[in-house]
Deep mutational scan, measured.
Amino acid sequence: NQESVVAAVLIPINTALTVGMMTTRVVSPTGAPAEDIPRLISMQVNQVVPMGTTLMPDMVKGYAP
């Protein structure tokens, strides 16, 4: 099972992602793949992402898996 990126903390809208904001988990439906964490760092979210929420590609500005 592939791990997806999950918010480790509450991420406010327009916040640039840091490694400490993200964790990985096997979830369904799958979100952004765990191996993309290095690409996701410094990208901004376009909505509030509550802690424990799977990071879906459409939540991150300019990100395409």
Rank of each mutant, 00 (worst) to 15 (best):
Q44L: 11
Q44G: 01
N46R: 08
T30M: 15
V26A: 10
G31L: 03
M22T: 07
G31N: 05
M22I: 09
D36C: 10
R39Y: 11
M43N: 01
T23H: 08
D36L: 04
M21I: 06
V26H: 12
T15A: 12
L10Q: 07
V26S: 10
T24A: 14
T23E: 09
T54V: 07
P29D: 00
N14T: 08
V26M: 13
G52H: 07
V27Y: 05
G62E: 06
P38H: 12
Q44E: 14
V5Q: 03
V60L: 06
V6F: 04
P65Y: 09
V6Q: 01
E3L: 14
E3F: 12
V19A: 15
G20D: 12
V6P: 03
L17Q: 00
T15G: 06
P50R: 10
P33Q: 03
M51V: 10
M59P: 00
K61G: 06
V27D: 06
K61V: 14
S4L: 07
N46T: 12
M56S: 04
A8F: 09
I41T: 03
N46H: 06
N46K: 10
V26I: 14
L40V: 03
L40G: 02
T18V: 09
I13R: 13
A8C: 09
A64I: 15
T18K: 11
A64P: 10
G52C: 09
P57W: 15
I13A: 14
A64V: 15
A8I: 08
V6G: 00
A64H: 14
M21S: 06
V19M: 15
G62Q: 06
V9N: 03
P12E: 10
A7G: 04
L40E: 00
A32M: 15
A8N: 06
T30Y: 15
P33K: 06
G62I: 04
P38L: 09
I37L: 11
P29I: 05
P12D: 10
L40W: 05
T18N: 05
K61Q: 11
L10D: 15
I37V: 08
V26T: 09
P38Q: 10
P57N: 03
G20P: 08
P57R: 07
P33L: 09
R39Q: 10
N1V: 14
L17P: 00
G31K: 01
L40C: 06
I37C: 02
T54D: 00
V27K: 01
L40S: 04
P38M: 10
Y63V: 03
T18A: 10
M21A: 05
V5R: 01
G52S: 04
M22Q: 07
D58Q: 13
V6L: 07
V5I: 14
M43W: 06
D58N: 14
V9D: 00
N1T: 13
M22L: 14
T30K: 15
T53P: 01
S4D: 00
P65C: 11
V60W: 06
M22R: 06
S4I: 07
T30S: 14
G31T: 01
N1S: 13
V45T: 11
N14M: 08
L40R: 02
L17H: 02
R25M: 10
V6S: 02
R25Q: 09
N14R: 04
K61P: 11
V6C: 08
I11Y: 01
P33G: 00
A64T: 15
N1I: 13
G31H: 04
I37E: 03
A7T: 05
A16F: 15
E3Q: 13
E35V: 13
M56Q: 10
G31W: 04
V5F: 05
T53R: 11
P12W: 09
Q44H: 13
Q47K: 02
S28M: 12
V45H: 04
T15Y: 07
T54E: 01
P12R: 09
A32V: 15
P29F: 07
V48L: 12
V9W: 06
V27H: 04
A32I: 15
N14E: 05
V5M: 01
V45P: 02
V45G: 01
P38W: 14
S42T: 11
Q47G: 04
E35P: 02
V45W: 06
A7Y: 08
D58H: 15
T15E: 04
R25W: 08
A7C: 05
D58K: 12
A32D: 03
V6I: 13
G52W: 08
I41R: 00
R25L: 09
I11V: 03
Y63Q: 05
P57E: 01
I41W: 03
I11F: 00
T53N: 08
P50S: 09
T53G: 08
R39N: 07
V27Q: 03
V49H: 02
P29K: 01
P57K: 05
V19Q: 13
S28E: 11
D58R: 14
T54K: 00
P29Q: 00
N14K: 04
L10N: 13
T53I: 08
N46M: 09
E3Y: 14
G62F: 07
V5S: 03
V6K: 04
G20R: 14
A64G: 11
M43A: 00
N14L: 09
V49A: 03
E35H: 15
V48Y: 10
I13S: 11
T15I: 07
I11M: 00
P50Q: 11
V5W: 07
V19N: 09
Y63N: 01
P65R: 09
A8R: 12
V60H: 00
V6A: 03
Q47L: 08
N14W: 15
G62T: 05
Y63F: 05
G20S: 14
R39A: 07
A7R: 02
A32T: 10
Q2C: 13
V48G: 03
E3K: 14
T30R: 15
E3T: 08
V6M: 01
N14S: 06
P65L: 11
I13D: 10
G20I: 10
N14G: 12
A8L: 09
P38C: 12
I37N: 02
P33N: 02
V48E: 15
Q44M: 13
I11L: 04
R25T: 07
V5G: 02
I41P: 07
R39T: 10
S28T: 14
L17E: 00
I41D: 03
A34M: 05
P12H: 09
N1A: 14
Q47S: 03
G52M: 06
M43P: 03
P12N: 10
L55N: 01
A34C: 09
P57I: 08
D58W: 15
M22D: 07
R39W: 09
L55F: 05
A64S: 15
A8D: 04
V9H: 02
A7E: 00
M51N: 05
L40D: 01
M51D: 06
T24P: 08
T23V: 10
V48D: 15
A64M: 14
N14P: 02
L55V: 05
R25S: 09
M56A: 04
V9S: 04
V26Y: 14
I13G: 00
V45F: 02
Q2Y: 13
T18Y: 08
A32R: 02
G31D: 03
T24L: 10
T30N: 14
I41Q: 02
T53D: 10
P33T: 00
P65A: 13
A16W: 14
P50W: 09
R25D: 08
T15W: 08
D36E: 06
Q47R: 13
M56W: 05
V49C: 05
I13C: 12
L40T: 03
A34F: 05
D58L: 07
S4F: 07
M51C: 11
A34I: 06
M59C: 05
A8G: 03
E35Q: 13
T23G: 07
I41H: 00
G20M: 14
G52V: 01
G20Q: 15
T53E: 11
G62W: 07
I41S: 04
V49I: 14
R39P: 03
P29W: 07
M59G: 04
T54W: 06
P65M: 11
T53Q: 11
T23I: 12
V45Y: 05
G52I: 06
Y63C: 03
P38I: 09
A16H: 13
E3A: 14
T30D: 09
K61N: 13
V9C: 13
N14I: 08
S42I: 08
D58P: 03
G62K: 01
L55C: 05
L55E: 02
S42F: 09
K61F: 12
T53F: 13
A64E: 14
L17G: 03
L10A: 06
M43H: 10
L55S: 00
E3P: 12
M51K: 15
V27G: 01
V9I: 11
A32E: 00
V48K: 12
L10C: 13
G20A: 15
Q47F: 09
E35K: 14
V45Q: 02
V5C: 07
S4K: 01
L55G: 02
V48C: 15
L10E: 12
V6W: 07
I37P: 04
M56R: 07
V6H: 01
M22N: 06
T24W: 09
E3D: 05
L40A: 01
N1Y: 12
G31R: 03
M22C: 08
I11N: 03
P38G: 11
T15K: 03
A64D: 11
K61Y: 14
L40Y: 01
P12F: 09
V6R: 00
S28W: 14
E3C: 12
V19T: 10
K61I: 15
T15M: 09
S4A: 00
P50G: 06
V5Y: 00
